[in-house]
């Protein structure tokens, strides 16, 4: 299903409830009423085209948002990505950590074994935070600078050197592998950790892990398919300006 602006947002959520955290990132919360997507976006001053692009990318793995590429500012996109980061670090990951901690509390018999899983997850959390920090403190400011330079038409010497040292293509490469640890944790729980005394805790952990994994996958797709091409185009423009 392609999500369009004249659809009722409530119908879309009925169809795919995993979009709820995504609309939250736009400041749209449950209890949003009976409006169409366009109506709700106008009321919340959200760029409708951008909203649809993100929703469709999440909803349909085959969706390729090419034609919408230029219709919104880089800042809008980055603001969204930061909101998503916040959701992962402040909500999702602490939630999962709490659940794993509960697993260690619930089973005196296998406490030390679940503790291994908890340590493993903490390590994942640190790595994830490092990755996000890097994006927010290094990559995004770089993109903002590119945008500013294009608007002003003047290319400072410093930026040229920076572009030679680091291009957005590198970012694409290093972007892959925070996922692998999540994958491992799922298998440790499914295959190798002892059966828990309370199955429902493990089940909830797995639900959350699958959910986080999907969210991160779509997040990475948005970065790779929308952000990266946009920045590549900007880098290209600036290189032409230098010559």
């Amino acid at each position: 299903m392609r999500i369009e602006k004249d659809m009722k947002l409530a119908d879309v959520i009925h169809h795919d409830f995993s979009l709820i955290p995504v609309i939250n990132r736009f400041g749209i919360h449950l209890g949003f009423g009976d409006g169409t997507i366009e109506e709700i976006c106008i009321k919340k001053s959200v760029n409708t085209e951008f909203f649809l692009t993100i929703l469709n990318t999440y909803h349909d793995p085959q969706y390729f948002p090419k034609k919408h590429l230029q219709s919104f500012h880089t800042a809008t996109l980055i603001e969204y990505l930061k909101k998503a980061h916040q959701f992962y670090t402040e909500q999702k990951i602490p939630e999962i950590q709490n659940l794993i901690f509960r697993l260690t509390e619930e089973s005196a018999q296998h406490k030390d074994r679940y503790q291994l899983a908890l340590n493993f997850f903490k390590e994942y959390q640190e790595e994830f935070t490092r990755h996000i920090d890097r994006e927010e403190k290094l990559v995004y400011p770089y993109i903002y600078e590119l945008e500013k330079v294009i608007e002003s038409g003047k290319v400072p010497e410093k930026l040229i050197r920076r572009m030679e040292a680091y291009s957005i293509m590198d970012y694409e490469d290093e972007h892959d592998n925070v996922e692998e640890k999540l994958f491992d944790l799922k298998n440790l729980i499914i295959k190798y950790l002892p059966a828990p005394s309370n199955e429902s805790t493990s089940y909830r952990i797995l639900l959350e892990l699958f959910d986080l994994e999907k969210d991160l996958r779509e997040h990475a797709r948005i970065e790779d398919m929308i952000l990266v091409p946009k920045v590549e185009a900007m880098e290209f423009t600036i290189q032409k300006m230098i010559r």
Partner: peptide, 14 residues
Amino acid sequence: GIKTVSGLTVYALL
């Protein structure tokens, strides 16, 4: 079905 060194370490300890 485990890819990372830390994951393998947990497996090896278990």
